[in-house]
Nucleic acid binder design. Sequence first.
DNA 1: TGCAAGGATGAAATCGATTTCAGTTACACA
DNA 2: TGTGTAACTGAAATCGATTTCATCCTTGCA
Lengths: 329, 329
Amino acid sequence: MNITELAALAGVSKTAVSRYFNGGYLSPEKRAAIDAAVKATGYAPSEAARGLRTRRTRQIGVVMPRLSSESTARVVDGISLVLADKGYRLLLANTANIPAREVEYLDALRQSGVDGLIFLASVFTPEHRAVLKSIHIPVVIVAQQYEGYNCVYHDDLGAARDLTALLIRRGVRPAYIGVTAQDRAAGWARHEGYVQALKQAGLAPRAEEMYLSGFRMEDGYDRARALLAQRRPGGIFCATDAIAIGAMQACREAGLQVGRDVLVAGVGDSAMGRVTAVPLTSAHLHYKTSGQEAAQLMLKLLRRQGAGTRAVCLGYEIIERASTAGPGM
Amino acid sequence: MNITELAALAGVSKTAVSRYFNGGYLSPEKRAAIDAAVKATGYAPSEAARGLRTRRTRQIGVVMPRLSSESTARVVDGISLVLADKGYRLLLANTANIPAREVEYLDALRQSGVDGLIFLASVFTPEHRAVLKSIHIPVVIVAQQYEGYNCVYHDDLGAARDLTALLIRRGVRPAYIGVTAQDRAAGWARHEGYVQALKQAGLAPRAEEMYLSGFRMEDGYDRARALLAQRRPGGIFCATDAIAIGAMQACREAGLQVGRDVLVAGVGDSAMGRVTAVPLTSAHLHYKTSGQEAAQLMLKLLRRQGAGTRAVCLGYEIIERASTAGPGM
DNA sequence: TGCAAGGATGAAATCGATTTCAGTTACACA
DNA sequence: TGTGTAACTGAAATCGATTTCATCCTTGCA
């Protein structure tokens, strides 16, 4: 069933049918006739043909690392909530955390004709910059700040600073376990926040108290074991909840009671951190909100209301739980 | 840049360019000329035009409840892993757990021209049946068994039976907290497994020991509190990990030590259940695998190798942790 | 009465690819 | 020499919509 057949059935021209779906001059009689024909046949215009003519697909590409990460899933959830409402659909590209694949998929999605691209970024290589420059449709970058592009990101530095300060207020000098600084937000900014808090408290950051880890719980566990084998810090500030949870496990196994002998904090307020043996102090980052904001921003850009680029920085909320109760508890 | 311009640039016909991208007779000289032109311009065929002509989009629709649920995310992760490899892209529809929206989105995706549909199902209303019947592209249903359709699902009944039997072996008569039987897999089948295990052990199931709950942790907490206010079961078998984690919390607050005073088990082997104060005994369901299987099945169907419908039932793995250590521990 | 404005209409052009089809060339083989 | 086959070619038809444009029909108003 195509527009020509439907038009014949309703006794009108193709043009009238097109106007029925897209608005335009159309008499009530024809409208009713088309309405009846559409209802009877269940006809719907071909998206392919429509897309060819209008150059719009009402699809938004989303490039992201692992869907099965809580934060990513929350962001995408937020995006889909807003966009589905406006009739847009999400075209997903799962990069499995491989930067080269990000570049590849950004390019592939661009060519596949999406109206816009939302990119959940972690690192920026020269290839990233090149492919982003070659994209001539609206782009919104989530979770990282990138000069000259529309971004929605979190105040990672502030969250890390406040959490570190909290540990210091509880009477300890925290060590640090974080991730690669290539990830400006989760790596560099959170580390910087840690350093700033130390300095503000008059403490000198020491390289031997700062550890680099992977993103997984197991990585946090390993690094914390290595750390505890060398020194006994009063607290550990971890760049992510997963690392923190691994670290708490290592502490427990070392005979330390988390929240009393050693204070631990993470970032992200993951569901896991709420149910651990000792609930984890963390910073709630508004992931779902950042997805929604990114989608709103995308809608604005699609409506060509994109006067200049915008950068939206979302706040955070420190959630104190038992893991930072304090030495006296 | 379109095919006509590129053909002119390379000094060949449009047909030759098409054959360059799709295979067909083409002399090495023309191939080289087109290759050079493509490399120089970065030309890629318009997906819209191609889709119009071929009626294929290389897009697979995925309809699912909440992305921000661990099991869903794992399934979709598995799907995208397999399909991305074969050049297919995922068109996502997030139904926010609203059955009416599932029907709506199934219909919308069908009309948007996807080559196939993967449906992460929970309940089947008459409207679901109707819309599924109206779909004439390959469909794979995940997580539920549905007669006459290609399905990939888990042995929910077996997992529930084994876990309940485990609790009984540990010397307790477990109560049950589960979800609506409208969800055949997570609701009905897991309940049925519980009942079967009781009967096999010569115990009569009692209605007053079976509670109906929502899907969230808070729901499990509430139901467990209500349960504990009435009776003190030696164990609780919960239809999902989230419920079980809520229930463990309620037990702790009631002064009971989970794993000793009360044994608890869930289903799903969620990341949360591994880090709780008392780690949770659960059944690992191969969610990611089910996504991969569903994708493989879809690929077969797309290749028209769909001789009859197939139903793939995946096994499970009982993961014993401290929450079912036993009264003596 | 005349005329401008705007509602309503549908034929035809267009979007950018794939596919059909008619035909050429080259070569092997009887 | 004739013939069958396979490699190769490109003009033209086609997919199913949107959009342009010329035209017709009403009104309202001077």
